[in-house]
Design a protein around this nucleic acid. Structure first.
Length: 273
DNA sequence: TTGCGTGTTGGACA
DNA sequence: CTGTCCAACACGCA
């Protein structure tokens, strides 16, 4: 589910369903998920009440009572689902939290097991490396700062947009879609683009992300929100995984190249360096 | 059957 | 600093 719109959709679902719930039991089922002693994990989380749910980039921070927080990163295939208690366990369940009085379980499910979950004191969040190194969130950064940060680097735009220390939240889909909307070539050098074109990219990013959040994210493969609802932004994708199809603007065939080891889709006529 | 590609990230290395 | 290759892992597909 990984990019900003999908993570925001999950965070919104958590806000509406689990805030105020009490954790009746917590179990850590795979060791690489949290890299802590499962017994200590269960004991610490037991009885805590769930408070605010925040998101920065692709990361979610769930506040618990008594100053603890759960930090979550889905990586490629991690998901948080709210399920009935009698739903059978699977080998991909990494952590299970039973909630009261809702009487459901919140399950961290992750096929590829790259996802991570950390339990830490609230005051330590700023020192959590993965969190501390994030640049400003793509939806909160101002146009001026966005332009300044991209111009400060001498890199191709595509890998720069994927770099979470520059701007946090974009991934492969929304980077491609934003560059297409802004009519900028993914291999264009960030430092050589005019402020006007980078401002245009900023507007494109805002528009693409807002549209995707409105659609509940993109459900390719099996992504869905905490309540199982699927997103439908994938039907609005203009270039992502449209290799060989006609550009929706000019009709020229969408091209696929590999940049930073990631598939990159663009229109060779519309998108210029 | 085998190999490739997939929404992410971090480390090793030139 | 920047780019490239690889690794973590499971699965669908040609």
């Amino acid at each position: 589910m990984p990019e900003l719109p999908e993570v925001e959709t999950v965070a919104a679902g958590l806000r509406s369903f689990i805030v105020g719930q009490r954790i009746r039991s917590a179990r850590l089922l795979t060791k690489q998920l949290a890299r802590v002693n499962p017994k200590n994990f269960s004991d610490t989380v037991f009885g805590k009440t769930i408070g605010a749910v925040r998101r920065k980039g692709k990361q979610i921070v769930i506040e618990l009572s008594d100053g603890w927080i759960l930090w979550v990163h889905f990586m490629m295939t991690g998901k948080l689902w709210l399920l009935d208690l009698d739903e059978p366990e699977t080998k991909f369940d990494g952590a299970v939290f039973e909630l009261q009085p809702l009487n459901k379980k919140l399950v961290f499910y992750d096929q590829r097991r790259f996802g991570r979950l950390k339990l830490l004191r609230k005051e330590k969040l700023g020192r959590l490396r993965e969190y501390a190194r994030l640049g400003p969130d793509a939806l909160e950064v101002s146009a001026d700062e966005f332009v300044r940060r991209l111009k400060a680097r001498k890199r191709m735009l595509k890998p720069l947009l994927l770099d979470q220390t520059a701007i946090a939240g974009l991934g492969n889909i929304y980077a491609d879609e934003s560059l297409f909307l802004a009519k900028i070539h993914p291999a264009a050098a960030s430092s050589r683009l005019s402020n006007e074109r980078l401002s245009g990219l900023y507007s494109a990013v805002q528009k693409v992300l807002a549209g995707a959040i409105r659609a509940g994210g993109s459900s390719i493969r099996d992504y869905s929100a905490v309540d199982g609802r699927r997103g439908y932004f994938q039907i609005q994708h203009q270039v992502y995984q449209k290799t060989g199809e006609g550009c929706p603007v000019c009709g020229r065939k969408i091209k696929r190249i590999v940049v930073a080891q990631r598939s990159t889709h663009f229109c060779p006529r519309c998108q210029k360096k």
